[in-house]
Design a protein around this nucleic acid. Structure first.
Lengths: 244, 244
DNA sequence: GGATGTGAAGTAGTTCACAGCC
DNA sequence: GGCTGTGAACTACTTCACATCC
């Protein structure tokens, strides 16, 4: 009986958030021609303990080799599989202000199956303009079918926009507005709130809560515990050009 | 003996992330002339249970009134105190691309004591230009003293920038680059990674993990359990103008 | 009556420590 | 020898349930 993969049992929330980080590490190693990595190395690069890495990966089925770590290509594959990167899905962005524009122009945002389907705004100066190959539509126009909607409107408008998106059949929202949304059961909302992140940082600074955990990865200062010569496959000449 | 406040014992990480949300709710009620709120109402507006709200607030000292909830003004005050909003602190932003620009132009980012101290970039086309009253400095210039640095550079440049900031004496970093940073112990790093948020959302969609938790607040669909007439103090006419 | 504040129970996540396999 | 995978212990957070006080 072959490995019974697919439907890799339910993963915990923190695990899901860490997988994309492990995957980035795997890709970086692949692109540097390396093909084995162990939990210790992943842990150092991701800012978590080796045990946590092993538990997370064990949840994707046992594909590591005792004594030799993980095959980087398989690691990447298994994570992609677990996160559903084989499927493509459509994303729309509502609110084409500075942030909306920054997101759609970013090479780091719409990746791994995400495909930009449409842009919406209600500012007459913006509607009709073209951005990354899409003409910004008015919110009065019908909402195109999509899997996820990204909300980048001011907080006062966020609830109304969310209502409209939900009734258009979109049940996954990524909300950048500092506003908790009231949505029907069955709709997923994720919040990204910049100022809250800053405030958390300040709390720890004020209270000297030394190590301090955080955003996604808590990443306390990892001071490269093992005196590994160079962990990053190649330190990359750091071009330091352009900006996100 | 008066209430022994200040040094309100250590708060848990999830609690700290929720306090800013409660505070926003308190401010909204204040601005609508309301001055009492109970844990049930806060919970519905914040997307968490009433018990969680009470536990969180109990950690700030007992200032609620049994039978009558919390005084909105005191609530706001206590949270501000706990999060250190009395102090002002300087923030610098490194990497003035689309995202950096969006952040400094946002009215929702640098709030509650945060004060923009300087902007840095290394693109000659950007250095010297003026944004929100600040001339963008070159990264070759000395780093001004600041409490927090916001990193908005491409991932390849992030580690080098972080090293520079740390050696300039900045020990709190808010990193928007999809790159885990290696910093000395004693330096706090928080990560905001847009694409990871999208990926988490997709995981849940693919796996039908119904309720689904998330970003900061997990906020599963709250379908206004109690048939409260209108919880938002006044539904606000939703101007829906402009964008973040 | 009504809502807070909190022990006690329950649930989730992490870390330890080691058996098992290469 | 070295590193994975996992039971068992531990720690953290949430939820229950109720005594307490306005």
């Amino acid at each position: 009986m072959a490995t019974p993969r697919l439907r890799p049992r339910k993963l915990s929330e923190p695990t899901i958030a860490r997988l994309p980080v492990y995957q980035r590490i795997a890709e970086s190693w692949t692109s540097h021609g390396l093909n084995r990595i162990d939990s210790q190395q992943i842990g150092e690069l991701a800012g978590v303990t080796a045990t946590t890495v092993r538990r997370d990966l064990a949840g994707l089925g046992s594909f590591g080799t005792r004594g030799a770590g993980y095959d980087v290509r398989v690691l990447n594959e298994r994570i992609a599989e677990a996160l559903g990167h084989d499927r493509q899905y459509d994303v729309i962005v509502v609110g084409i202000g500075n942030l909306g524009r920054a997101l759609v122009n970013s090479t780091n945002f719409l990746i791994r199956g995400a495909r930009l389907a449409a842009l919406y705004d209600n500012d007459p100066d913006v509607v009709g303009t073209s951005i990354v190959g899409h003409v910004v539509k008015s919110l009065d126009e019908p909402i195109v079918p999509a899997t996820v909607a990204v909300i980048c409107v001011p907080p006062e408008a966020a609830q109304a926009v969310a209502d409209r998106l939900v009734s258009a059949g979109i049940h996954a929202l990524l909300n950048f507005a500092p506003q908790v949304l009231n949505v029907p059961i069955g709709t997923a909302v994720h919040y990204v709130d910049f100022s809250i992140e800053l405030q958390i940082l300040m709390y720890h600074l004020n209270n000297g809560t030394g190590p301090l955990g955080g955003g996604l990865l808590h990443s306390l200062g990892i001071a490269t515990p093992t005196p590994t010569p160079t962990l990053t496959p190649t330190p990359t000449p750091t071009p330091m050009r352009g900006a996100l």
